[in-house]
Amino acid sequence: MGKSLKQRESTLGWMLILPSTVIILSLILYPIVSNVISSLFKVSLVEKDTFIGLENYRNVVSDINFWKAALITFVYVVATTLGTALVGLGVALAMNRQFPLRGFIRSLILLPYVAPVFSVVYAWKFIFDPVNGIFMDLTVEKLGIFSQRFNLIGNPDTALWIAIVFSIWKYFPFTYLMILSRLQAIDNNLYEAAEVDGASRWQQFRYITLPELYFILGSIVLLRVIWNFNKFEDIYLLTDNLKVLSIYTYFKAFVGIIDLGQGSALVIIQFALLLVFILIYLKKVLKW
């Protein structure tokens, strides 16, 4: 028993973390590395892979559909991120005021975030269903905005906007919760002092609330960009044919003519795009 307490602690520390480390290394880091490698090969599940250098990447960027998917993804990510942040901000400001039943309503509006994606997409499909849906009933029969019923989700152009509204609906509770907890931490004396100085409501919001929220809003935007950029289920289950990058990759790799090599190259390109964004964002906006 010559070991010191420090050594024993260190051994125990490693023993306890080892299983998690092994799992994470072998099932997350190793796959990423192997993905980089297979993106350089013509991959076949039955034969041996053949090295083709950057051929997969060339094939990806020379395909017009890739650029279409990239554009759709860009619109989707920008609109959903801004939408969730703004709706979340508005709701947080409202929920920060006193009103009856506030506690109950605060939990009630978490429902979209809590419910599984796969259980809520069909209700959304139903709402926009051309035959039975309430949206078409409202816009065609009741308000007369459109002259006839049509399939909003079936058409990729309009499906994009439904997917954006769906994402805002699903994730605004997340931004609202984060903003609300920050709002509650703002010192009330600041507002009292501002009122004494005759600042209007808008000025109070502009010069006290907003600066206090800067970093939390910055983090929310970062997290939502990362997660919405990689989103698959929400879009695939709701719309079927809206090809953002993740779905484009999925189809390339697993549906129809299966090309895992090109799929791997696509994944690497996606990852690189995201990484570049994160690094720029951290430096410019969050000032790391």
Binding site: I24, I28, I32, S34, N230, F232, T249, A253, L260, V267
Partner: peptide, 20 residues
């Protein structure tokens, strides 16, 4: 490392894990 891994989306791991 744990925090970093947390940022990686499922779609990035799907193809390699399937192959494995």
């Amino acid at each position: 490392g744990v925090l970093f891994v947390y940022m990686i989306g499922g779609i990035l791991l799907l193809i390699p894990l399937y192959r494995i």
